[in-house]
Every structure is written in C-alpha cells, then in structure tokens.
Design a protein around this nucleic acid. Structure first.
Ligand code: SF4
Ligand code: SF4
Lengths: 159, 159
DNA sequence: CAATATAGCACCGATTCAGTGCTATATGCC
DNA sequence: GGCATATAGCACTGAATCGGTGCTATATTG
C-alpha cells in the first residue's frame, strides 16, 4: 500500500510542532496535551528520530526533544527514512536490505529497473521537501507574522 | 509502508508484457510460463485491470487479455489506482473513502494540508509515467530495434 | 530522595496482504 | 453436442506488518 504509516505522521506532527517551538525543548507530554496522540507511541517515534539524529534528546525533569538541525535542512525523506527505514517501491529492494531477500521473479523481472527510476524520482521529491515547507502557513513564523501585521496596522491610518 | 503491493507489481509485469505483444491477446497461462508468477493471483489482478478498463478480456478458448488503450496513454497512476484503490499518503484520505473515516487528530492536524500537497506531486509523477516508459529498453520495440540494427549492418562495409 | 521524562525491550490485537479453492460462464474446436 | 480452454466471481486461510501498550532502567532537576 502506497501510504505513510501512522508513526511517520506522528513524527511529522511532532517535528512541525518543534519548528514552532524552535530553540526550546518539547516533551512528549506537551505534544499529547496539544494533540490527541497516544503518548507511548509518540515517545517511541521520537526515540527513533533521536536515534536517527534528527532531534536531540534531553533526559530528566524539564527534558524533552529539540531539533538537531535547522528546519530547512531536515527533509521529508530523512524523516520517513528514520521511521520506516530505507524507502522502497518494489518489494525486492526492501527485502534485500532486511531479509535474505529473494524474489523468484528477480532474474527475469521486466519492471525492476524501470520502477527503480520512478523510485528515484519519488525519493528526489521527498528529499526536496523540507520540514520548513511542511509547516502550514498559519503556523509558520506565526509570531513573526502577527508582529508584522501589528506593525502594518500601526503604520496605516485606518483601523 | 511506502511500497507497492505484489499485486501492483504483477499488474505492471503483465502490462509490460502486453506491450511487447501489442495487438495480440495474452493469456494468464502465457504470462506464467514466461515469468514464475502464481497463476491464480495474476488472474485476479488481470480481472481488476479489466474491471478498471485498462485491458480488454476475451473469454473462452484462445482467449486472454489485450490492452484497452495505447501504451502511451496508460499511466502508472491508473494502474496502481486500479489495483490498490485511490492513492493516499495520509491515513485520513484513504479511510475517508472506504470507512467512516475518523482520525481523532483530524480537526487539529497540522500536517494534513501540507502532506496533501506532497501527495499531489507524487500523483502527478505517477500520472506522468506512462506504461510505455516503463518498458525496459531491451524490450521496447525489440523487433524494430533488431530490424534497424540489421539494416545498419547491411549498409556498412565492415562486418 | 522524589518527581519528571527519556531509553530500551518485548509483547498483543487488528488490519492488510499474498496466495488458493471452488464454481459458473463463455468461446473455440473436434 | 461435447470437451478443453480460459475468464468471472466469490470467499477463505496463513503470514507479515502495524498500531498501541506494559514494564523496567536511567538520567536530570530540585
Ligand atoms: S524482482 Fe520484480 S517482481 Fe520481484 S520484487 Fe523486484 S520488482 Fe517486484
Ligand atoms: S488527520 Fe492528520 S494525523 Fe489524522 S490521518 Fe490525516 S494526516 Fe494523519
């Protein structure tokens, strides 16, 4: 099925939230207070992101997670790759990395190479999609936007 | 998991094979003689493709399937869509079509809209990928290539 | 020491998927 | 007509994956 897992979605939600809180630490508790997410599962996901080097973990009281890189340099490909493992369209290049991987058709498969090209395109799309670009407009730099709006209103004669 | 199902792969193999045999009918038996595929499953897949209008079925002896459209007008999107249903990246827009579809996060989900944009790009890629472009070079117009090679050899002084 | 919060590991229930069984129907050929 | 071939339709089983949770250990703050 050509679909992201819930885990990946939770990872994206967490990361997008962290962009809003850039510079601060975000705990799993804080995330689950703002969004109705299963706490334990989100914790597991964040752990994976930490292991992948996308976020930095801070243990103990007042701890939590913070972005390990700028939101512009983290890509959708990195995120999905961290949660679901290396990307794959065909079954062979996914089982090849995990299991003994032997598709019976492999030696005579007429679609392996062409589909591989499609996978490359898809991967390029994922790598070109930055975390920053995934932050919804109302959330992106919300404070900065509000600030600019206030300045604009203050400078204009009307209202 | 961001991956095609075996069914989709079998559909692609079958269709690519039919491009080679364009104009003729291809039976499931013929397909399974050339590739080590589970006959019954391939039959099921071809049935779906027929129902989706991508191939035309011919019942009875000497029957089989043939392309319903030119290989240039059949897209990867159509094929995958016919086998796996409407494409989806997030869980909400897949369950929305099949089930009552209620993600708890939906009302406050910060990634639904941005990921939707990515899905659009992905879908555009799939729609831009024609069946013809999925035929490996050695197979595409194999006869024509051989013919041209022979003419080339006949015309050149050497060999 | 107590409270908070991540680290690690293993487990269960549900969903999806790969593959198969069985029967009906349509076509070609003798 | 009778038989072989081949698709149509439907339902089912076993396996793999995924969503979600339990439990314990460790680190940090105060
Ligand atoms: S070899 Fe062909 S059929 Fe087998 S997994 Fe790879 S792409 Fe799919
Ligand atoms: S609403 Fe958000 S979390 Fe729920 S399925 Fe859609 S994208 Fe995923």
């Amino acid at each position: 099925m050509l679909q992201l897992t819930k885990r990946s979605e939770y990872a994206l939600i967490a990361l997008v939230h962290m962009v809003d809180r850039e510079g601060e630490v975000t705990s799993v508790r804080e995330l689950c207070e703002r969004y109705p997410l299963p706490k334990r599962l989100v914790a597991e996901v964040l752990k994976d992101l930490s292991h992948a080097g996308l976020v930095i973990s801070q243990r103990g009281a007042q701890g939590g997670y913070s972005l390990a890189q700028a939101a512009e340099s983290i890509t959708l490909g990195q995120i999905v790759g961290a949660i679901e493992g290396a990307p794959a369209l065909t079954n062979c290049d996914s089982i090849a990395s995990t299991r003994d991987g032997g598709c019976e058709v492999h030696p005579v498969c007429p679609i392996r190479s062409p589909v591989e090209r499609v996978r490359e395109h898809l991967w390029r799309l994922f790598e070109a999609t930055t975390l920053r670009s995934l932050v919804p407009a109302p959330h992106a730099n919300r404070e900065a936007v509000i600030q600019r709006l206030r300045e604009s209103l203050a400078g204009s004669p009307s209202a």
